[in-house]
């Protein structure tokens, strides 16, 4: 067990502000964040400001923002949830992976629709 490259100076949990869970609906790490046109209030923290600046040119996912901000995705979720709650960001759930549709389900749906007539 090697100790790694020194002790980091600023830990990621600082952005949580002492909360144990994000205050709001949980965001997936692939959720897409979109900046709205609202102005940030003057008391906004530096990290929230940076996140908004990052999103100003266009949408990014949570995990991409995390990489840009050099934070873990779990900590970025806290930031994003706050900004979504205050209306400065919009969050869109990730696009689900396209999967095979269960054939039997479609068949049952078809049978049901036919039986309606």
């Amino acid at each position: 067990m090697n100790p790694g490259p020194g002790r980091r100076l600023i830990p990621a949990y600082l952005v949580t502000g002492g909360r144990s869970a994000p205050s709001g609906p949980a965001l997936d790490r692939l959720a897409v964040l979109i900046r709205t046109d609202t102005d940030l209030p003057t008391g906004t923290g530096a990290e929230q400001r940076r996140l908004c600046e990052l999103l100003a040119p266009g949408a990014l996912t949570v995990v991409e923002c995390a990489a840009h901000l050099d934070l873990p995705a779990g900590a970025t979720v806290f930031l994003a949830t706050d900004l979504v709650a205050s209306g400065h960001l919009r969050a869109r759930p990730p696009i689900p992976r396209a999967g095979e549709i269960d054939r039997s389900l479609v068949e049952r749906l078809l049978v049901g629709l036919r039986s309606l007539h």
Partner: peptide, 10 residues
């Protein structure tokens, strides 16, 4: 922290 998103790790 970089592998899992659980806030309990924080």
């Amino acid at each position: 922290q970089h592998e899992y998103d659980d806030p309990r790790i924080l």
